[in-house]
């Protein structure tokens, strides 16, 4: 999503978000992420207005005090930015890829099932299976911090079964153009 992203050309405009819309965003973030209202309040204080940065291809980035904290494609789920996920790693369910996949991930590739199902990988156990279309934090084998944020293309059980093709679509990853932009 952010493999090629030039703030100077790809941003169409910035507008402060209406408070009613902010309320609905806050509610949906609280329902989509595993985050306590208090923590969200610390990240994004109520008094601090959210700024909507509109980008090409229906991409919206929301910033607080110029720092991007979440983004959204179309009406899809909200993703936290990678920097936010580093600070609060528990807000998204975790998937893990094996070591071999890291370099492809850092080049912007989507995550294939074998990388997730192999020994170094990790998918949530059956009881916590994720459906397709859930935002996930992508972690890596032997590493502490997340490398990317993505969305599941298949249910996690399906991934284990099929074990081929794209399992998690990468939304943002370490070193992409959103990572490079520290403030908008």
């Amino acid at each position: 999503m952010f493999k090629k992203f030039q703030p100077s050309t790809d941003i169409a405009g910035q507008t402060p978000v209406k408070s009613s819309v902010q309320r609905s965003i806050r509610a949906s973030v609280l329902s989509q992420w595993k985050i306590e209202p208090e923590t969200l309040e610390a990240i994004w204080p109520k008094k601090e207005g959210l700024v909507h940065v509109k980008c090409r291809e229906h991409l919206s980035i929301y910033t607080v005090k110029g720092e991007p904290i979440l983004f959204q494609h179309f009406d899809g789920p909200f993703y936290p930015t990678l920097r936010l996920l580093h600070k609060y790693p528990y807000i998204l369910p975790m998937v893990k890829v094996d070591r071999g996949a890291i370099r492809f991930l850092l080049a912007g590739a989507h995550m294939m099932c074998p990388g997730l199902t192999s020994k170094g990988g990790y998918l949530p156990p059956k009881e916590e299976a994720l459906p397709a279309g859930a935002p996930v934090g992508i972690f890596a084998e032997g590493k502490e911090h997340a490398v990317g944020v993505g969305i599941t293309k298949l249910g996690t059980e399906e991934m284990k079964e099929l074990n081929r093709d794209v399992g998690v679509e990468t939304a943002t990853y370490l070193g992409d153009d959103l990572w490079v932009v520290q403030s908008l």
Binding site: E36, E38, T39, E41, A42, H86, K87, Y88, P89, I102, L106, K143, E144, H145, V147, L174, G175, W179, V180
Partner: peptide, 19 residues
């Protein structure tokens, strides 16, 4: 509010040093 995890970033490449 839960305190954020303090992540150290490499000053050269901005990644966490493990990457």
């Amino acid at each position: 509010p839960r305190p954020p995890v303090q992540v150290l970033y490499c000053a050269v490449c901005t990644f966490p040093p493990e990457y």
